[in-house]
Design a protein around this nucleic acid. Sequence first.
DNA 1: AAACCGTGGGT
DNA 2: TACCCAAGGTT
Length: 339
Amino acid sequence: MAATVSDLLLDWYDAHARDLPWRARPGEPAPDPYRVWLSEVMLQQTTVAAVKPYFAAFTTRWPSVEALAAAPEADVMAAWAGLGYYSRARNLVKCAAAVAERGGFPETEAGLRELPGLGAYTAAAIAAIAFGERAVVVDANVERVVARLFAVEEPLPAARKAIRQRADEVTPDDRAGDFAQAMMDLGATICTARDPKCLLCPLSEVCEGRAAGDPARLPIKAAKKPKPVRQGQAFWIEREGAVWLVRRAGQGMLGGMRALPDDGWSARGNGTGEAPLDASWDSAGLVRHSFTHFALELSVLSASVERDPDGAGEWWPLERIEEAGLPTLFAKAARLALA
DNA sequence: AAACCGTGGGT
DNA sequence: TACCCAAGGTT
């Protein structure tokens, strides 16, 4: 009888699984659902290398979902600074509160799916990895592996339905969590987006994409739109060894994060060029920063003042600027201003 | 349902 | 350099 995809993949995983801080080794008991949840949210659209130091910091500072739920939201947002996609941090706080309130994580895919910040992928991943449920886990790695394995010629995103169906067909009843992690490891290390290592792949003998001759061209994706370049200004306002920081609105770009005052630049257009107060401004330089859907040229203006700017904000000590939790854009601006 | 939402690393 | 990409979710 021919070996199934899941047999081949699980055998490979038993020998080659990556050793990651949030993961149990093959055969060990399932890890703490809190650690699975936290890692899965951090890993959304984010590389393993980027997540590792944040995962270590969060689990040290907040060892349980109850501890995280009890933390001030500002502390969690500041600890997330630099990881990106800050709605994840806002939802992390909401989710921790909901889980602590109900006395633990839901143990089913459907129950998990109701929590803030958990979509189809993350709910399935936690159900399978932490609770051993047979859930169909489809992320970008699985899409790529499945598209190649079954030579799916339909372009993404239209192919998602067919890919999910194929993924369901190869997902085993037992070890669904290991199977999901094996698919993701395969996608991350062997069946990579560029230059797949087919000679090392446990599925090479059954891969229809390889049989067809050019697996690397799959999955087929639509061309990306060009990013506009926007111009804006940020203001470095000093008084008595402190800098004026504001908190951005809860929705939208860098929502909920501490920030420098700026002139209202956005994805849609340039800033107004208007400063938040009259002062003698010096140019501290230009920050070029690329977001997902636009690029920003941010000119940083610096001044010393003797009164508070209008509106809400706080004077933050310069020597503790690293602890302010500025997102990377404004951390770059601060570096310029302090240079 | 297409658009919005970060960042760092690889090529 | 410029572009692509990564364990997606929300609206």
